[in-house]
């Protein structure tokens, strides 16, 4: 950290970090407790609960389902989001503000409301395709994240590099591949990983749209809490935290510096 940052600001940052991180530490600590029920502070140490969760067929099934769902949602969010972000940045379109506002609105409207609205819509249409419904619901909430990060990276693209490339004889397609892509790749990857995490962790939308065979991890976790109260729930929660952390570290590792530019 920089030395000219005022101490007040430093304290604020640390308090904020503590507030964000502390609740995450609790389930991790509880997950290693050597007791048949959840306690805090933990007593003893065991990795038994992790073993139980990881070998549980139901848990594995729901984990694989969430991976599949998040994967499909990420793909669709990128396919829709990247051209949309590029278009919004590059062209002066009529109603640009309105389009952006609509796309970003899921960040403002409570997710639970969006979930209900989608459920009612699908019911009215008589749809039974649960997986497709989940994909649509998740894509609606993931798209804003993709568009925000990707449009950020398009804003930073140096246009004169493109001019230089085309004067040197590069066709528009070559310019996109050789000049634009290397510049926007970090933003697109980050947007994709954000979308993946948001979909993987989503509860409020899935709650309305899931069924017995299409059952993502957060719902499974909730049902486990209702069924039992041993530390395997904490172990499951901790695994989700580690998984998300791993993804964030991957972004940081791959594009740390360029990302700092994007977000600041």
């Amino acid at each position: 950290m920089n030395d000219d940052i005022s101490p007040v600001l430093k304290i604020c940052v640390w308090v904020l970090l503590a507030l964000v991180v502390a609740p995450l530490v609790v389930p991790v600590l509880m997950s290693v407790s050597d007791t048949p029920f959840i306690t805090f502070p933990p007593q003893g140490f065991t990795t038994e609960w992790y073993g139980k969760v990881l070998t549980d067929a139901e848990a594995q099934g729901t984990f694989l389902f969430s991976l599949k769902l998040a994967g499909v949602v990420t793909l669709i969010s990128l396919i829709l989001g990247v051209p949309c972000a590029a278009g919004l940045v590059r062209y002066d379109l009529p109603g640009q503000g309105l389009i952006l506002g609509l796309i970003l609105s899921p960040l403002i409207v409570p997710l639970i409301v969006i979930g209900v609205a989608l459920l009612q819509t699908f019911a009215m249409l008589g749809s039974r395709a649960t997986f497709a419904q989940l994909v649509i619901g998740h894509t609606v909430v993931c798209l804003p994240y993709v568009i925000r990060t990707v449009s950020g990276s398009f804003v930073l693209v140096n246009r004169s590099l493109e001019d230089a490339a085309s004067v040197m004889g590069a066709s528009p397609l070559t310019v996109a591949r050789r000049v634009v892509w290397p510049q926007v790749r970090p933003g697109i990857c980050a947007g994709g990983i954000f979308a993946f995490i948001v979909s993987f962790d989503d509860y409020p939308i899935s709650m309305w749209l899931a069924d017995g065979r299409n059952f993502p991890v957060p719902l499974f976790l909730h049902s486990m809490i209702e069924r039992s109260f041993d530390p395997s729930i904490a172990a499951m929660a901790a695994l989700m935290i580690f998984f998300a952390l791993l993804l964030v570290l991957m972004i940081e590792k791959a594009f740390g510096i360029s990302l700092a530019r994007l977000i600041s």
């Binding site: 140096n158 004169s160 590099l161 001019d163 004067v167 066709s171 290397p182």
Partner: peptide, 20 residues
């Protein structure tokens, strides 16, 4: 005639070198 087919050379004020 599109830019890339004109066979010209250009030097930009900010040089526009490909950083990667």
């Amino acid at each position: 005639l599109p830019v890339h087919k004109r066979n010209l050379g250009m030097l930009f004020q900010d040089y526009a070198l490909f950083p990667h």
